[in-house]
């Protein structure tokens, strides 16, 4: 659908919002399950935790961050247009502004998350 129909910005914004939303919903199921597991069987949870820190786990972690960041930014864009209809005229500009924020903020997170997968020290230190 995304490739056959040359959708405009509004249609792509909607499709990405829906895809990222379903993906985040699926992760919520996994995330509540893993925290529940940490409570009832912490040894098994600690063993499974190594999956999150593996290179493949870090790629999924970065993808999750991208989905959350896009959904959050586009969600604000929707709310702005819902309660300030005049802004609907600028929905494309708002979407491009979102991508600028997404790129700047997303790169910081992506570099921090992926660095250990390449054997590098995570670049940002907050005393964590």
């Amino acid at each position: 659908m995304l490739f056959r129909y040359r959708g405009s910005e509004g249609m792509l914004a909607w499709a990405f919002h829906r895809i990222s939303g379903v993906a985040i919903w699926a992760f919520i199921l996994l995330h509540v399950l893993d925290i529940w597991l940490a409570n009832v069987n912490y040894k098994l949870y600690n063993d499974l935790l190594s999956l999150y820190g593996s290179p493949g786990g870090r790629v999924l972690e970065t993808a999750l961050g991208a989905a959350v960041l896009y959904h959050a930014l586009n969600g604000v864009r929707i709310i702005v247009m819902d309660f300030w209809p005049a802004m609907t005229r600028y929905h494309k500009q708002l979407w491009y502004a979102n991508w600028v924020l997404f790129t700047v903020v997303g790169l910081v997170f992506a570099i921090q998350i992926m660095a250990p997968a390449f054997g590098l020290q995570a670049p940002f230190s907050f005393g964590g």
Binding site: L49, S50, Y52, G53, E61, G65, V108, F109, Q112, I113, P116, A122, F124, F126, G127, G128
Partner: peptide, 8 residues
Amino acid sequence: VHLIYDPA
């Protein structure tokens, strides 16, 4: 959970 600390 992902920037300040590492989930690992």
